[in-house]
């Protein structure tokens, strides 16, 4: 077992990442995911250039214009706002939500997982007990309740998603710390008198990266889905923010007359989340030691 881990996860060596990248480029599904993510990232960064109109500008005379008419490529919503521009700006918001939520989870889960795995004993027992209890709550319910308590807003939605997703990062990081802790290089450093904190953050943490990256990639996709759901329920972004879930919620009464106002933002969510899931699945195949033989 320990031989196995040494062979599989010496990520401190540059060769590991180089080899992983090479395998990634040969995994068609993962590359498709990467391309989708890159596409969304680009239009998010250059949203002001990519969007033909101001996403908030209302043209009441052009309400619910169908796609490909009067110069509106994807049509307009019930207030005459350009749907394409709103979807582009929505991508910016969704990516920020995904990354920030996962950042919160990673920070919380990372600290807890590292502490639990590194110190063991009662620290580990208490932390894992709390984690287990959090996992006794269904994820979606936990998120909704946290937002309900904090009050509906985009920031609180990110915090709620971050907290709800935290347990899985804590578990992943704890597990890899446990397997790294007894490795020769850690024992060697410790015998040289390296302090606990330094050992944890400088030596062990980088070696827990591989499984964490897999979890985080899938986590961004899930965070985008969750935030869209929260906004749909009125617990996330507030009008007139061009958030995808909110766009669907605020135009759902028009599904009888204007299919595009609901369908298109949903497709954008689907595509973005699919990108992260494709990449995450591919990364898991490549980086997860348990799946390697």
């Amino acid at each position: 077992m320990s031989d196995n881990i040494k062979e599989i996860a010496p990520p401190a060596e540059p060769g590991f990442w180089k080899e992983s990248w090479y395998q990634l480029t040969r995994n068609r599904a993962a590359m498709a995911g990467l391309i989708i993510i890159a596409f969304f990232a680009l239009i998010a960064i250059f949203a002001p250039l990519a969007a033909p109109e101001d996403p908030l500008e209302q043209t009441i005379s052009a309400r619910l214009t169908a796609p490909f008419t009067d110069g509106y490529i994807l049509g307009t919503d019930d207030l005459g706002r350009d749907l394409l521009s709103r979807i582009i700006y929505g991508g910016r918001i969704s990516l920020i939500i995904g990354v920030v939520s996962v950042g919160i989870s990673l920070t919380l889960g990372g600290v807890l997982g590292l502490a639990a795995g590194y110190f063991g004993g009662w620290v580990d027992r208490i932390i894992m007990r709390v984690i287990d209890i959090m996992l006794a709550f269904p994820y979606i319910l936990l998120t909704i309740v946290i937002v309900a308590i904090l009050g509906p807003s985009l920031t609180n939605a990110m915090v709620a998603i971050g907290i709800s997703q935290m347990p899985r990062y804590a578990r992943v990081i704890r597990a890899s710390v446990l397997s790294e802790r007894e490795q020769d290089y850690v024992l060697a450093e410790r015998s040289l008198g390296t302090g606990n904190l330094e050992l944890m953050f400088r030596t062990i943490l980088p070696n827990t990266l591989a499984p964490t990256i897999v979890q985080a990639t899938l986590g961004v996709g899930e965070a985008i889905l969750s935030s869209a759901g929260l906004s749909f329920l009125g617990l996330g972004a507030q009008p007139p923010t061009p958030e995808w879930g909110l766009m669907i919620a605020s135009s759902k009464q028009f599904i009888t007359s204007a299919w595009w106002v609901v369908t298109l933002p949903g497709l954008a969510i689907l595509l973005a989340v699919l990108g992260f899931n494709l990449l995450g699945d591919g990364l898991r195949d490549i980086l997860d030691p348990r799946l390697r033989d």
């Binding site: 996709g221 009888t256 989340v273």
Partner: peptide, 13 residues
């Protein structure tokens, strides 16, 4: 990868 609430609306549509 699909938002459930969106799928529900598309099904209704």
């Amino acid at each position: 990868s699909m938002p459930v609430f969106w799928l529900a609306l598309v099904l209704i549509m």
